[in-house]
């Protein structure tokens, strides 16, 4: 498969997954914080922006437009490249470019999502409609992708992007707890703490899974257990990195080791480290630090894919 196309499919998977997660994150956090602190709408958006790692970009944008509404920034901005709308536009741009590698159904669904993401209202009701449109559309796209796209290399690259992005977003959503409010020691285990962990579970669509897996009353270590280490839960870090590993191996089945070995090493080590970790220890030594390192390692995988596979310099042909 063409290297450029492989890279595009990988990014298509990433952008679609990111769009879904941004919608999910914005939806739940704003609801949760509004409920707990009636005057705290703005604060909730700050937390969302921090979770997405966009604080600096937001402050820069505020410098230019002091009245900039955080909703406009995170959701509708066309100037900010990571906004929900920009993410959908990027996914659609790629889908158009690699259209011959996805099915007509998948392209049309992505195109429809893109055509529907014009700027809407910033009130709660319009936003919720908007989020649910995005979430449903992405779900439909992923379903169509699974059922209509050929079982070839490109499909594996798409999934590599998707699971890498999902791992990153799950870690960011958990990290959001850190941004919502720095835990004061007396508060841990209290009603406020518990409520916030439930919001984290809902952001990751994990509340029902939490109940079904019988984790008991909601506490930080248990939520971390599910979202990080439960291999049965399809958004957990362990699951996502495992899937990334599996799809990467399939994608590079015929790739010479001189190209494939770098990302393979990063992915394997990350998976082993995750399997060897323990939720309680991680929390004791600091969740935020853990996620920082985790996201750094995902960045290293991304970098290895780009340098050694997608944009590798051509070697002599074998004839």
């Amino acid at each position: 498969m063409l290297s450029r196309v492989a890279e595009n499919l990988y990014w298509l998977g990433r952008y679609l997954e990111r769009a879904d997660n941004v919608a999910r994150l914005a939806d739940v956090n704003v609801q949760a914080t509004t409920e707990m602190t009636p005057a705290g709408g703005g604060h909730a958006w700050e937390a969302v922006i921090a979770t997405l790692g966009a604080t600096e970009a937001y402050e820069a944008a505020l410098g230019e437009r002091p009245n900039l509404n955080p909703v406009d920034f995170v959701i509708y901005s066309t100037a900010y490249s990571q906004s929900l709308r920009s993410t959908v536009a990027a996914a659609r741009g790629i889908a158009r470019e690699v259209r011959e590698h996805i099915s007509r159904e998948v392209f049309e669904e992505i195109n429809r999502l893109y055509l529907g993401t014009n700027r809407g209202g910033t009130d709660e009701a319009s936003l919720r409609t908007f989020y649910s449109t995005v979430k449903r559309a992405v779900a439909a796209i992923l379903g169509l992708f699974d059922n209509t796209v050929l079982m070839t290399e490109g499909r594996e690259w798409f999934h590599c992007g998707l699971f890498l992005e999902r791992a990153e977003m799950t870690s960011r959503i958990m990290d959001a707890k850190y941004f919502i409010i720095l835990p004061v020691p007396e508060d841990v285990g209290g009603p406020r703490d518990r409520y916030q962990w439930m919001a984290v579970l809902r952001s990751a669509s994990a509340l029902e899974a939490y109940r079904k897996q019988d984790y008991g009353p909601v506490t930080g270590p248990r939520v971390a257990d599910l979202l990080m280490f439960d291999a049965d839960f399809p958004r957990s870090l362990v699951y996502c990195v495992g899937e990334l590993h599996r799809h990467y191996d399939r994608a590079t089945e015929h790739t010479p080791p001189v190209r494939s070995v770098y990302a393979a090493r990063e992915i394997t080590l990350l998976e082993l480290d995750l399997r060897a970790a323990d939720a309680r220890n991680v929390i004791r030594s600091g969740l935020h630090q853990f996620f920082d390192e985790f996201q750094g390692r995902l960045g290293a995988i991304d970098n290895a894919l780009r340098t050694h596979i997608f944009q590798a310099l051509p070697e002599e042909p074998t004839r």
Binding site: M1, L2, E153, T255, P256, F310, P314, E315, P317
Partner: peptide, 8 residues
């Protein structure tokens, strides 16, 4: 040649 993930 075209530049593929698997080589040229």
């Amino acid at each position: 040649y075209l530049r593929a993930t698997t080589g040229l």
